[in-house]
Amino acid sequence: MQDFEDFVALRSQALLRTAYLLCGGDRDAAEDILQDVLMSMYGKWRRIRTSPEAYARTALANAAANRWRRRSRKPEAPLELGAVPTSRGHEQQVVDADSVVRALAELPKKMRAVLVLRFFDDLSEAETARTLGCGIGTVKSQTSRGLARMRELMGEQVLTWN
């Protein structure tokens, strides 16, 4: 299982970042689900037929969605986006980074997952659809609505994408 150990050592950081965004910026939850996903992959390692990274991403998206289902039964603190400074220095970048995660946390789980996989993990529409187990049409519509919603939530901090 050396290759599994290599995979964990090499890819944990990247997967943690994806998990962090999928969990809407909850670092502890991200680490928990990543650890759980990786441990569950150990027993199945030889049977995983896709790329291990793709498998892990799918499992993370599912785990984050299930976590969200559990959490959604509890009331959550309202989102408060801070005022937007006008200058665009390092502090502005920090504000942008913080508010983009908070805006992401406001999105429905699937919409958030689509945006994370498309724009952070650089998956194609087809790969995103495969990862989330949905159709390409769903990915397209969730992307479009998700980006529009992000724009609403981010206010003046207009986001661009290609």
Binding site: S12, Q13, L16, R17, Y20, L21, G25, R27, E31, L34, Q93, D96, A97, D98, V100, V101, L104, L115, V116, F119, F120, D122, L147, M150, Q157, V158, L159, T160, W161, N162
Partner: peptide, 16 residues
């Protein structure tokens, strides 16, 4: 700000 850039900035300091 580009969305990808913002997401990468938000996770740049994250490590296990």
């Amino acid at each position: 700000m580009e969305l990808k850039e913002a997401l990468e900035a938000a996770t740049a300091d994250l490590d296990v």
